[in-house]
């Protein structure tokens, strides 16, 4: 079971697709204006990641090396199309809001990266779990960024959550500041870049603190800094 725990830690934190791999930034930056949008796209992406990882892992012995990329693309593209159709049918308003970014999940390199580097070499269960954890790691960053931008930009949290979860959730909106005029920069694209930069910085600070603490408690062991690869 420690294998699954390692996968979870890698996906959610150490190799988080958004904060460490810096993959899939286009949708990340574009739809993180509110928590609702962020959560919607995050969950759709997670679903595709789990499906793609599971499918590829199941057929990994049948795929020949030179054919693997077209097969991956086929799998991912058809999954995304299915998600798009389902969303159009069952979450129509959210579909309207997310618009072009649902079909663009196809181009999220985080998905094909996980398929290629993990699912193609592992059994179905760990592969699906890896997709889930990577997807949730991505979603978490999206939602955090969405919360920061929504709070700063329009002074609310969880507005229009009913678009995603149904009319029962309409009144969940939290108004942080009445008559707030809004901070334009947070809603505009630069706000997304600033927000993401702050999140990446925060993660690095936490990692460094943690590394220092481990070094102090165990002065003999050589603890390597967490590599932050791009």
């Amino acid at each position: 079971m420690s294998e699954l725990r390692d996968i979870a830690r890698t996906g959610l934190w150490e190799n988080n697709p958004a904060l460490v791999q810096l993959l899939g930034l286009c949708p990340l930056l574009a739809v993180s204006g509110t928590v609702t949008n962020a959560l919607g796209l995050g969950l759709a992406t997670t679903f595709v990641m789990v499906g793609a990882n599971l499918t590829v892992s199941l057929i990994r012995d049948q795929i020949r090396d030179e054919l693997r990329i077209p097969v991956y693309v086929l799998v991912i593209a058809s999954l995304v199309t299915a998600v798009e159709l389902l969303m159009h049918a069952y979450r129509h308003d959210l579909y309207k809001v997310l618009g072009i970014f649902i079909p663009l999940i196809v181009t999220n390199c985080a998905i094909i990266a996980r398929v290629e580097s993990f699912a193609a070499k592992n059994r179905p269960l760990p592969a699906a779990w890896d997709g889930l954890m990577m997807g949730l790691g991505f979603t978490a960053v999206l939602v955090l960024l969405g919360a920061m931008r929504e709070a700063l930009g329009q002074g609310t949290l969880l507005s229009r959550l009913d678009l995603l979860l149904g009319p029962a959730f309409r009144d969940l909106e939290i108004v942080l500041a009445e008559d707030y005029r809004g901070f334009l920069l947070a809603i505009l694209p630069p706000g997304a870049f600033f927000g993401l930069a702050l999140l990446v910085a925060a993660k690095n600070v936490i990692d460094q603190r943690r590394a220092r603490r481990t070094r102090e408690t165990a002065p003999q062991g050589d603890v390597a800094e967490a590599p932050s690869s791009l």
Partner: peptide, 21 residues
Amino acid sequence: LLLGLFALITTAVVAATYQLT
């Protein structure tokens, strides 16, 4: 043949979802 098979299967999945929705 293998690639064609995968294309068939994935197209079938999309077509089924389309019919469903």
